[in-house]
Write a protein that binds this DNA or RNA. Structure first.
Lengths: 158, 158
DNA sequence: TATTGTTATACTCTATAACTATA
DNA sequence: TATAGTTATAGAGTATAACAATA
């Protein structure tokens, strides 16, 4: 199921099989480099939870567990740690006192912004090192990479 | 350090800061989707070790520990597990009997090939869903993404 | 009785320290 | 003595099961 078996286009530079393999390798490598730049001292589950809390606003612990696809006891511990670090805060629900809502503190938002900026600075430098032709071709393709991940039926939630 | 502070190009679609943030978001999301497709039942360290062993040929356990940036006892356990699963095999060094070399078995190579093919099929489908213009713009940019990760001075090893 | 979240406990993964066997 | 790898032990992280508080 590679270039020989896909009867779409004869030219190798638009053969979807060849393009897929090429894109997979490049995207995986670039993502790995970016991930390495994102070190914060937080564990993967902690940084992931913090990101979810920021993106999806105040969340109950149960909702956070669903977002993170993780068991309730795990979020209890992760949130306790993030709270201890001052990155998130809990607010009791007045109407139903079983429920707690967590949201990101300014310190938590700063941490996430710092990580993103570090990655963007690195990427901007790499992009700045490209020649004009390369930079224009990259600019012209950014929305296509958008399109590849948009409306994915296999990943409805999250 | 975003679009307003980088005095490179006035047009937003080639502003390196804007491009960097856009690319970061898209690459991260696409990589996450691909990673989710790569589930094998192996732990992250196991799949990573298997990949390193395949790529860098027969490796001593010490060399594998260096590649994986992991402590020696960890590779002992990871390799023992991969060997038990029939995915790698050990070969004693005849000249120095302290040393063991690990390499990928056909079953291990098959497993890695299957994972890659699963990802490539998914990506090829997404690319096939693009219109001709999008597909050509993506094809024209693939080597640029190559260029972004090539010769990275900050990641000399590995 | 049902639901939200916590505590108790166990398992996996990885680390450091101590050890075995070769050189 | 030095090196390659293993075994012993400990610390994170996450899971299931049992529990407490509230509805």
């Amino acid at each position: 199921m590679t270039s020989t078996s896909l009867p779409t286009t004869a030219r190798p530079d638009t053969d979807v099989g060849v393009m897929a393999a090429h894109l997979r390798v490049n995207v995986t490598r670039l993502a790995r480099l970016l991930r390495r730049l994102g070190d914060t001292g937080l564990s993967p589950s902690q940084i992931s939870a913090l990101t979810s809390i920021e993106r999806h606003g105040p969340l109950t612990l149960g909702a956070l567990a669903d977002h993170e696809r993780v068991a309730p006891p795990s979020v209890t511990k992760v949130v306790a740690k993030l709270e201890e670090l001052g990155l998130v805060e809990r607010k009791a629900n007045a109407a139903d006192r079983r429920v707690a809502h967590v949201s990101v503190t300014p310190a938590g938002a700063d941490l996430l912004a710092d990580v993103r900026q570090r990655k963007d600075v690195w990427l901007a430098t790499r992009i700045g090192d490209l020649d004009d032709d390369q930079r224009h071709r990259l600019a012209a393709a950014l929305d296509v990479i958008d399109a590849l991940t948009a409306h994915d039926p296999t990943v409805a939630g999250r």
